[in-house]
Computed example of a mutant assay.
Amino acid sequence: MSDSAPANPFGEAITSDDIVDSLGFFDSWEDRYRYIIDLGRELPVLPEALHTEDRLVRGCQSQVWMDITEKDGRLQLAVDSDAFIVKGLLGVVLAAYNNRTPEEILAFDIDGYFEALELLRHLSPTRGNGLRAMVARIREAADSAA
């Protein structure tokens, strides 16, 4: 990533708008991928005890664990993956969904968000399917909590 790239404010509740703005800053997809990977590196560590079968997201090429809890009417997401790029994609998804109410999650235009990022065009079909599986898991939890 270039020295003039925007700082990563992930620890300061980065938003989906922040992600769109930051990725728009880069001219090449190589730089965008580096930024996405850096997002994943900034995610809090998911304790090994939460790497359980019931938290494993099916449909992902890599292993993805997702712990979803509700606190004060908002869904709290904790995630991990064994692949750097997938962990970064989880950061992109968390920017849209983490600490939101179930209603906000269900109302959020995730397809429009991914379109604004041009993300699905630049992922392999299996990575795209995995991304959709992650989103589906979160939306199911939001639907159950709503």
Rank of each mutant, 00 (worst) to 15 (best):
M1R: 12
M1D: 10
D3C: 08
S4F: 11
N8R: 03
P9R: 03
P9T: 00
F10Q: 01
I14G: 01
I14Q: 08
S16F: 06
I19S: 00
V20G: 04
D21T: 13
D21M: 08
F25P: 04
F25I: 08
F26L: 08
S28G: 12
S28Q: 13
S28L: 06
S28D: 08
W29Y: 03
W29E: 03
R34N: 11
R34Y: 05
I36C: 12
I36Q: 03
I37R: 05
D38S: 15
R41E: 13
R41C: 13
R41L: 15
E42N: 11
L43S: 08
V45R: 09
V45M: 14
L46T: 06
E48T: 10
A49K: 07
L50R: 11
H51W: 15
H51Q: 14
E53L: 07
E53A: 15
E53Y: 10
D54Y: 11
D54V: 14
R55C: 12
V57T: 09
R58C: 09
G59Q: 11
C60M: 12
C60W: 08
Q61N: 06
Q61H: 06
Q61P: 03
S62C: 11
V64Y: 05
W65M: 08
M66E: 07
I68Y: 04
I68S: 05
T69E: 14
D72I: 10
G73W: 13
G73Y: 14
L75K: 03
L75N: 09
Q76I: 15
L77D: 03
V79M: 12
V79L: 12
A83W: 02
A83E: 04
A83L: 05
I85H: 03
V86W: 02
K87M: 11
G88V: 05
G88K: 04
L89D: 01
L89N: 01
L90T: 00
V92R: 02
V92T: 04
A95P: 03
A96D: 02
Y97V: 03
N98Y: 09
N98R: 09
N99R: 14
R100C: 13
R100K: 15
T101L: 10
E103G: 12
I105F: 08
F108Q: 02
F108Y: 14
D109V: 08
I110E: 02
D111G: 11
D111I: 09
G112C: 10
Y113D: 04
Y113G: 04
A116W: 07
A116I: 10
L117P: 03
E118P: 01
L119N: 04
L120P: 02
L120I: 10
H122A: 11
H122S: 11
L123N: 02
S124G: 14
S124P: 01
P125C: 09
P125V: 06
P125E: 09
T126H: 00
R127C: 00
R127D: 02
G128E: 08
N129Y: 01
L131G: 00
L131E: 01
L131D: 00
L131R: 00
M134V: 12
V135P: 01
A136K: 06
A136H: 07
R137K: 10
R139S: 02
R139V: 00
E140S: 02
A141I: 10
A141N: 14
D143T: 14
S144V: 07
A145Y: 10
A145P: 14
A146M: 08
A146N: 14
A146R: 15
